[in-house]
């Protein structure tokens, strides 16, 4: 987990450094230096339009990671209340809500995301909404399962019998139980959401040029792979490192929480 946090911290520092450095602006073209390899002037080389790759890579950090976090926030905005209400209400409400989630889950996630993007038009915002629409049901199911398990604990029932209101039971005894495992899920899911967004940008239906975004940079590099492999390596490595960081943090959190007794959560 430490390495994961270190990587994420590193991304944050680099993103800040990118904005204050004297690197060329990420959109500035220099057609005379197109497809140039790494040099003293351009540490990571240039792309097919002569733009500085390091500058674009750093400018893409807030775009790519920000998009992943925004998507995760959108997923949680739907999945958290959905899973909570479904798990706590039980009965017919639970059945109807879960069948609706099942219907959405019946579509392959990327196909559903593509359909939403097709409807809205290719853009980073559309891909955020598309991924959120496709990803929320599985997260709602997970949250519902956590709620059901938390709600069955003796102390939750005991608090209710001892006079606590339904609202107090939810906020004081159920939600605190699900937050730590939810943090693990969010961290691991952010990694897969980041991959999905990068894939959509790679396919040309996510972030649109000239916006610097790792997936879009990979897409732009594709035709020049044979002549300028450096165009692929840098954004590719950035995606790998970011996914690895979120996964490591998620795994680390899980290990940390597994070591603790459940009632200490």
């Amino acid at each position: 987990m430490t390495f994961g946090i270190f990587l994420l911290f590193g991304f944050a520092i680099l993103a800040l450094a990118g904005g204050t450095s004297n690197l060329p602006p990420p959109e500035k073209m220099d057609l005379l230096s197109r497809l140039a390899g790494p040099s003293e002037r351009h540490l990571l080389g240039t792309d097919h339009l002569g733009r500085d790759l390091l500058s674009r890579l750093l400018a893409a950090i807030p775009v790519s990671l920000g998009a992943a976090l925004k998507t995760m926030a959108a997923i949680l905005a739907i999945a958290l209340p959905w899973g909570l209400i479904s798990g706590l209400a039980g009965g017919r409400t639970d059945m109807v809500m879960m069948r609706l989630a099942d219907i959405v889950m019946a579509f392959p996630t990327l196909v559903l995301a593509l359909a939403v993007i097709g409807f809205m038009g290719a853009s980073l915002e559309a891909s955020i909404i598309g991924v959120a629409v496709a990803w929320w049901p599985s997260n709602a199911r997970l949250i519902r399962a956590l709620v059901l398990s938390a709600n069955e604990r003796d102390f939750v029932k005991a608090s209710y019998l001892a006079g606590a209101s339904r609202r107090r039971v939810i906020f004081r005894h159920v939600l605190p139980q699900i937050l730590p495992p939810l943090a693990v899920i969010v961290s691991l899911e952010t990694a897969s959401v980041l991959l999905a967004l990068s894939s959509l940008s790679f396919l040309g239906i996510g972030a649109q040029p000239p916006m610097p975004e790792w997936g879009a940079m990979l897409n732009e590099a594709r035709p020049f792979f044979a002549h300028a492999p450096h165009m692929l390596i840098a954004p590719g490595l950035a995606v790998v490192c970011a996914v690895l960081a979120f996964n490591l943090v998620g795994e680390g959190l899980r290990d940390l929480l597994d070591k603790r007794r459940p009632y200490q959560w």
């Binding site: 003796d154 102390f155 005991a158 004081r172 009632y263 200490q264 959560w265």
Partner: peptide, 8 residues
């Protein structure tokens, strides 16, 4: 032990 909330 299990009947008392760990949060209280």
């Amino acid at each position: 032990v299990q009947s008392l909330s760990p949060y209280l």
